[in-house]
Amino acid sequence: MIGHSATRRRATVRAQRVLVGLAFAMAAPSPARAEELEYEVKAEFVERFTRFIEWPAASFGSPAATFVVCLAGQSPIAPHLEKLAKERAIKGRKATFRRVAQPKEVDGCHLVFIGPTEGGKLADYLAVTSGRPILTIGDSAGFAARGVLLNFYLQGGYVRFEVNAAETKKSGLQCSAKLLKLGKTVSLWGP
């Protein structure tokens, strides 16, 4: 009988622990909002970047050509970039949003946001974009070191970005000194 009651007591204690854990599930705000804000801000960063960068005229086939914003792979930034392209002009041009699934599809893009899902194919993407006036932007540790021109990271809860100056120079894009100053020089050790 004593053993039985001890078993019940242990079972009750276990139940308490589980309940306490589960109770927290009911009250706090959604972390999805945190991610929402983070990527909304990052999309604004993307737009601001374009103000500090000049593309060669040859990048645009005609004066009426649109500015093509591309997203490679998957990222929570997708709806924000799409909205950005739909509602705002970039470099004085109408913008369009396009998803790409393969490196060969980045032809025609002026800006490619490379999602974290594309780490395995990054070298393929860079083989296509390197030395061409295509602004590549990453959101994963080490992407800038591997050749992506700008790469987001978080520091103390704030959005920061790295710049791969050597690749940027090679790309033919004219990048303002201010952008280079605000960004952190690429580091092989990560941010």
Binding site: R48, G157, R160
Partner: peptide, 19 residues
């Protein structure tokens, strides 16, 4: 907001900070 202003927006609560 300017680029500088965007850099002053806290987007992630402290414990999620990458350090």
């Amino acid at each position: 907001l300017s680029l500088d202003d965007l850099m002053n927006i806290e987007v992630v609560a402290p414990t999620k900070a990458p350090q």
